[in-house]
Design a binder for these strands. Structure first.
Lengths: 224, 224
DNA sequence: ATTTTCTCTGAATTATTGTTCACTTCTTGA
DNA sequence: TCAAGAAGTGAACAATAATTCAGAGAAAAT
């Protein structure tokens, strides 16, 4: 055997793989999933189209990894925000607000990951991505229920509905119209968070307080 | 001129047009938008592929009409339900429940109309379809606010969020798992309606009452 | 320097479907 | 029955992108 993968080569290969994924992510952030096409991605990553296939068996695999990556990022942001809240209700508010801020600050990407038509089947990874976030929110709702802050309920269904509400209100086709300046964004985040908290049974007055408390740290984190 | 469209021909043409649309609708109801392809639709409608193009300029137009048709049906069902309710809060509950029941009773079709990937651009008609339903819900929320039953709010955003919640919870990819038997369906409808009402500010106890009142007529209508 | 093995290239291929159009069939009114 | 116009047919065409692969280029060990 006259050839062995040297450490340097291994690093280069890994770097290329990352570059391809990053190119896909940037393309998605700019033009949605429609812009995630092999040839343009290859150009962005400074490789040939064929090379992409040395790193990902198919476009579906590439997009699946992209979805998983973005989803991991979001999930960890949610956990960080919720874990640094003082109590279960605050944690829920923080989690919801974080999802809202994240979603809103990268609308095109979020839409692409969540729901935009793609020509290959990425159902499985989209499902996994949603399930992870839904589970996280559901467990936060559950904690608040166990603490006696909320009425008993189907936490799974509630979490699903909450995310649906956030996504539709913030990145759905009807959201596009008036969501450009930071002021409106901030209002929208607070409004949907309020709706979400009331939906699971937080009283109006208390919900308003939680929304305000959650808003500042979330916006600050997003800015950084 | 030795040829004129006779009444009989006009009727036959209209019937064919309807047959094509119906074929598309059935295909969508069975296999989602993915199943709406010109060649299979033509077979279902007992015409040749080319004939479809004598009635619809393009696949996009065909699907757009399909979306508009389904949307019209849903909208009129919502109005009927809401208008026969005793007050603004009941009307809102009836509207929300109707959307939920409709959506749930034709999941595949609803998913296709709302969000399933399609290879042609039907953004405009999807947008119009959603806007119509959102406007209807928003006006019902507004009526309840004006009656002093709900706190003042951004009714448009609230309506959008409500529909997002319903759709995600009932036909989204995470809903598929446990929504087969009528009992579960009924529970799900009531649960999401409850969430929706609380979201816009209805007190928990009152919301539960409204949900129960709205459920029976809506389920009955759907059964007929 | 050279051989071997891996990696990269990008033009050509493939696959899928919407769309067209030359031709056939049907309808109408004389 | 026949001429003129309309409607219907379906095989061929077109467009889009994903995917492949034969050859070129690098890297490693001797």
């Amino acid at each position: 055997m006259v050839y062995r993968r040297t450490h340097q080569v291994v690093k280069r290969l890994a770097a290329r793989r990352s570059a391809i994924l990053a190119a896909a992510r940037n393309a998605a952030a700019e033009g949605g999933m429609a812009a995630v096409q092999i040839a343009p991605i290859a150009v962005r990553a400074n490789v040939a189209a064929g090379t992409v296939y040395r790193y990902f068996p198919s476009k579906a695999d590439l997009i699946s990894e992209l979805i998983a990556e973005v989803s991991r990022d979001e999930l960890s942001a949610i956990r960080r925000a919720a874990d640094s809240a003082p109590g279960p209700s605050s944690a829920l508010a923080a989690a919801v607000t974080t999802v809202a801020v994240h979603t809103l600050s990268q609308r095109k990407l979020a839409w692409g990951i969540l729901a935009e038509p793609v020509d290959v089947d990425v159902t499985a990874s989209r499902l996994a991505s949603r399930r992870a976030v839904v589970d996280e929110i559901a467990s936060r709702i559950d904690a608040a229920v166990r603490a006696g802050h909320l009425p008993a309920q189907d936490t799974n269904l509630a979490a699903t509905a909450l995310l649906g509400a956030l996504h539709e209100a913030l990145v759905g086709p009807l959201a596009a119209e008036n969501m450009e300046d930071p002021g409106k964004m901030r209002d929208a985040v607070q409004t949907v968070t309020l709706l979400a908290l009331r939906a699971v049974g937080v009283m109006d007055a208390r919900a308003r307080g939680l929304v305000v408390q959650a808003a500042l740290p979330a916006m600050a984190r997003a800015g950084a």
